[in-house]
Design a protein around this nucleic acid. Sequence first.
DNA 1: TAGTCATGTGACCTGCTGGTCATATGACCA
DNA 2: TGGTCATATGACCAGCAGGTCACATGACTA
Lengths: 226, 226
Amino acid sequence: MTRRSHLAKQTFFNLPEEKRNLIANAAIDEFAEYGFEASSINRIVANSGISKGSFYQYFEDKMDVFKYLMDVIAKEKSEYFLGKHPPSDHLDTFEYFRWMIKAGMEFNSAYPRLVQAISRVLLVEGLYYGKDFAEYHKMSTDGITMMIKQAVKNGELDPSVDIDLAVIIMETWTNAISTYILNEGMKQKDIMKWMRSAKTQEKIDKFLYVMEYGLRKTESQFSTNS
Amino acid sequence: MTRRSHLAKQTFFNLPEEKRNLIANAAIDEFAEYGFEASSINRIVANSGISKGSFYQYFEDKMDVFKYLMDVIAKEKSEYFLGKHPPSDHLDTFEYFRWMIKAGMEFNSAYPRLVQAISRVLLVEGLYYGKDFAEYHKMSTDGITMMIKQAVKNGELDPSVDIDLAVIIMETWTNAISTYILNEGMKQKDIMKWMRSAKTQEKIDKFLYVMEYGLRKTESQFSTNS
DNA sequence: TAGTCATGTGACCTGCTGGTCATATGACCA
DNA sequence: TGGTCATATGACCAGCAGGTCACATGACTA
């Protein structure tokens, strides 16, 4: 049992919830404010009122705290999605994707600070595409790949579709929308209300339709091409 | 004349070209390898064989070297484009955009290391979207905005198009393609040859067609929408 | 009571950072 | 020759980073 590998030490989980949250929030604020590289453990301990020694009794290092936060968000998200169901059982792949993106955005609005911290590091700072998160990245890529294969199987996409390309496109869009909405949303005073407004929803729809129509219409063009 | 504001000091330009290149290359390697935040002036001076004091006689600070490199790339690029002309005078907006992207990619292949350094900092690390480069960013945004307005005027895009949205889409794509091609290209042994290969060109075409068809087809959808 | 053990602490370590400055060099000129 | 001036140098500075460790605390146990 020595190889729990990472993700916060047992001592951290023995702490009273209140203290755990204090530390987690200080870390969230730090990452949201400074990104990964520039964030400082010294500031995290100062802002959470614990000592440096304690910090290292809870976490291996900076990456360990960050991965702990990623774990928190993953758990919260899967819990959130358990209580959610698509509006219909007969959605096509793109309708399902659209529903998923929107539900994801709702989740983001519920945890704006945490999401901001994570996505600042992963997307803006670009760590998502580095080796530290290759594993997470692959999971997401695999999920999208499956969706696309399903879409081809269902006849929603031309079988000549370039799957790698389609994956990159969908991933790029998911991240671009997420970044865009988060940036705009952080300017609002009631992010959840703003997120649910017809105007915002329409904006997201437009983004996704551009992607969807592009993917649907293009691929068969490329059998012959000089 | 006291307010040259930034962009390397006169002493730097008095240096023999050889030495200037040595320093510039060391800086390029440093930024390409470590990004902006994590790159170290100590390493730059060590690798270029100059002393720390000299560095500060050539540049104000780290940002100053970086902006100098951006200036180099901007000048090289405009020189490069002076010798280039679209294949025809009667390209529609999207054809023109496509031509421009491809010519840009070609330029990137000619200066892969420099482009890699700059785009690592601006795109991957995300500084492009921060306040330090707001000026550059706005220039690019304005250019794209003009192109889109032209496309609407020419009847190539539905007048109901959401211009802000279209700009974001085109910008996102430009950057995504650029990042993708650069990453793939750096794996090749002859990047220029790879760049010019039919397969790579086709990949770029596909990317751009997805964007173009998406933009062309979608917008009129949104007059009525529940 | 004495001992044990998980938890907490902050002074301290090394290593690096960006940045300064008194001094040295050497080309050019009066 | 002696003086001037742009350039070059690297020891040095303060600051902060991540990380360690000898010691303090206090609850629980025998």
